[in-house]
Design a protein around this nucleic acid. Structure first.
Lengths: 233, 233
DNA sequence: GCTCGTCAAGAGCACTGCTCTCGTTTTCGA
DNA sequence: TCGAAAACGAGAGCAGTGCTCTTGACGAGC
């Protein structure tokens, strides 16, 4: 593409971004299902029909917000994790988990859009799946590094995956190269525990059963680290 | 209450149930946000305004469906678990987890209503929290039984909860009497791992990364059982 | 300079949750 | 037994939604 785009193209790109920004702000306050194209149009001082020039449907707007959300989450995790000394794998794990939680609590509606029940009738296009891998990559990278450094030791007598799962293990191994199957599945369990917790917390299903959530969360991710045999430095 | 209720009361109870049933059926096909009072009214051959005599608002209908959902899930788990020999704690755990998953996969939209992102603007009344404990009670009961029978041994060097979490542990101990704090939190982690998995699976966030989901799930709940130190019979 | 593609705007369709009114039916108490 | 009160169903209406179609204006390229 040439650096000199036409005025029209520039204006179009700007307006598209502005619509997405306003939508994201409204999403943060109203929630996903309360996000209305007409309201966005009103806020921009434009006719509702005009917005359809930029986003052919409400679902396309949602898709844009989802991709942006995965990106924001991924960046938040990456920034937090990269600040931890490479050889301190346990701390990298804990820091990453805390960063994911912090982002989730700061953007509950976006989190719901990414990890909650899908909006009815909304079919996520493949683009969203591609944007979704950054946090997985960070966590997987930690496991891989730790394994390579000999900092992972599953406890004796740990559960061995049945051979038929070898293929699925291989699929996940792209995020943690060289890591053996049994560790891959322990990592997967830790992963589901992490997001299971966040779902309960962000979606308000803990109600009043947990008082000191920060501490309890911290303890729970220590348990998952221990589950994976991630030894302290 | 007298056995002889008035005709009006009987008709009212029947109609209320019929509305809820139709709503549940539509929920199963359309999803939560697609559930429309008017559509239910049409299907019943009644004016939409008349439905408001039975459910003052859409949210009240949702509340009813949520409570019914928790009940159905709880009953499914109880029925499955009670069929397993009492002393086989590991099998009781696995069976219960499988029953929860089976129910979730059979009723994805209801599951989303219970455990997914809350509908916007909907504030769950306390009634729903009360209906929600049956599956927790089953799982907690297994842990408690196993602990009493000496069938739970956390691995050496397991993570110890900080003393400040004693209160939260006590709150959860009502579901597993006498169980010590560290086991309570390991159970909590297993619990979040279970529902974390189900959220990913039911909400379609696994996409294509896991082929043999039955086997992978089975393996993952074995990992959580192992995490709690639940020894085989 | 003229044409063609892009654009904003407005009207309109079918739908939603919810409210209010009106006429009817059922229940309950004097 | 009879009349008041409560409950009920239907319909109209309000404000909102996503989305489509048409109309008229504006800017870019030939």
């Amino acid at each position: 593409m040439t650096a000199a785009q036409t005025v029209r193209e520039r204006v179009r790109a700007e307006l598209t971004k502005e619509i997405a920004d306003i939508a994201r702000r409204r999403l943060a306050t109203e929630g996903a299902a309360g996000l209305s194209l007409r309201a966005v149009a009103r806020e921009m001082g434009m006719a509702s029909s005009a917005v359809y020039r930029y986003f052919p449907s409400r679902d396309d707007l949602l898709t844009r917000l989802i991709i942006d959300g995965y990106d924001a989450l991924g960046e938040a995790v990456e920034r937090a994790e990269v600040a931890v000394p490479r050889e301190n794998h346990l701390e990298r794990w804990l820091t990453s988990c805390r960063a994911i939680r912090a982002w989730a609590l700061a953007h509950p509606h976006e989190y719901a859009l990414l990890f909650g029940s899908p909006a009815p009738g909304y079919q996520a296009p493949p683009d969203t799946a591609r944007a979704r891998v950054r946090d997985v990559a960070v966590l997987g990278g930690i496991i891989a590094d730790a394994y390579r450094a000999g900092a992972i030791t599953l406890r004796e007598g740990h559960v061995i995956p049945p051979p038929s799962l070898a293929g699925d293990a291989a699929t996940h191994r792209v995020y943690m190269p060289d890591v053996p199957d049994e560790i891959v599945f322990h990592a997967l369990a830790s992963w589901t525990a992490l997001y299971g917790w966040l779902n309960f917390e962000v979606f308000g299903h803990f109600s009043n059963t947990i008082g000191d959530r920060d501490t309890a969360f911290d303890h729970s991710i220590r348990i998952t680290a221990d589950l994976m045999g991630l030894s302290p430095l």
